[in-house]
Design a protein around this nucleic acid. Structure first.
Length: 254
DNA sequence: ATGGCATAATTGTTATGA
């Protein structure tokens, strides 16, 4: 099974890019974040034309997540339990071919006022992931985590700033608690050098490869056989500021 | 220290992102 995750920064703005990515990469599962579209306006036809089923959980203007698959979707869940009072659409989960797929858009928390919400969200997410693993056994939790787990996941930690978003100790500790819920970073499984997944729109950050690795796939009960960042997608005209990450799962029993 | 750029909401300007 090939699983891709991509923060598209507006699904409607990126509809042609999404169709082109599906056409070229042919993922079995595609997790999308920052769809930025309310549920009645969700462009489901885009996925029908690609022969994919899709489920979504969105809101007006901000956030929004979706899971598309060329197979069948079952047992769909929306929202993180106990974090729904904020009304932020950041989580959707579904089962595809016996693998539980979790698609998450973790709060950015760049604003100090919102940082507490990010940390609270991550703590609830750790509990959610532990329960998903207990219930389903085989889980892939993909998405934009807004955490660069190590300094190697940052182009230049001193230039970015050790007190800047995505690298502060509390959010890195929260990331460790996600692993402690019984998950392994697909990146760690393949052992290759980490690749950035996000580059600022400003100051030619992509051209000079000043990026962060903040989009991840956490695995429980399954193994990653190959992991790639689709950098060409970030280099295309009018791109999202994130590139897709593509994970090939090892066949069951491997 | 701030802004750079992009997007959605609107249609001049603000909220948000990482």
């Amino acid at each position: 099974m090939k699983i891709a995750t991509w923060n598209v920064n507006s699904l409607r703005k990126r509809s042609e890019a999404v169709a082109a990515f599906i056409e070229s990469e042919r993922p079995d599962v595609l997790c999308l974040q920052e769809t930025k579209v309310s549920d009645p306006d969700f462009p489901a036809g885009l996925f029908r034309e690609c022969a994919m089923q899709v489920v979504w959980h969105g809101q007006k203007s901000y956030n929004g997540v979706a899971i598309a698959t060329s197979s069948d979707l079952a047992d769909v869940e929306r929202s993180l339990p106990e974090m729904n009072e904020e009304g932020q659409a950041r989580l959707i989960a579904a089962t595809v071919d016996g693998v539980r797929i979790v698609c998450a858009y973790v709060p950015n928390g760049g604003d100090p006022v919102k940082y507490k919400y990010k940390l609270a969200w991550l703590d609830h997410f750790a509990v959610f992931l532990a329960r998903q693993r207990q219930r389903f056994g085989r889980v892939v939790a993909a998405g934009d985590y807004n955490v660069a787990p190590a300094d190697a996941d940052v182009y230049d930690i001193e230039h970015w700033g050790r007190n800047s978003v995505a690298v502060r100790p509390p959010e890195r500790q929260a990331w460790q608690r996600l692993l402690a819920a019984g998950y392994e970073d697909a990146q760690a499984q393949v052992g290759a050098p980490p690749q950035f997944t996000w580059w600022d729109y400003r100051n030619s950050a992509f051209a000079s490869n000043r990026g962060l690795r903040i989009d991840h796939l956490l695995l429980a009960g399954v193994a990653c056989a190959g992991l790639q960042v689709a950098r060409d997608v970030r280099g295309a005209p009018e791109p999202s500021d994130h590139a897709p990450v593509v994970c090939q799962l090892a066949a069951a029993g491997d």
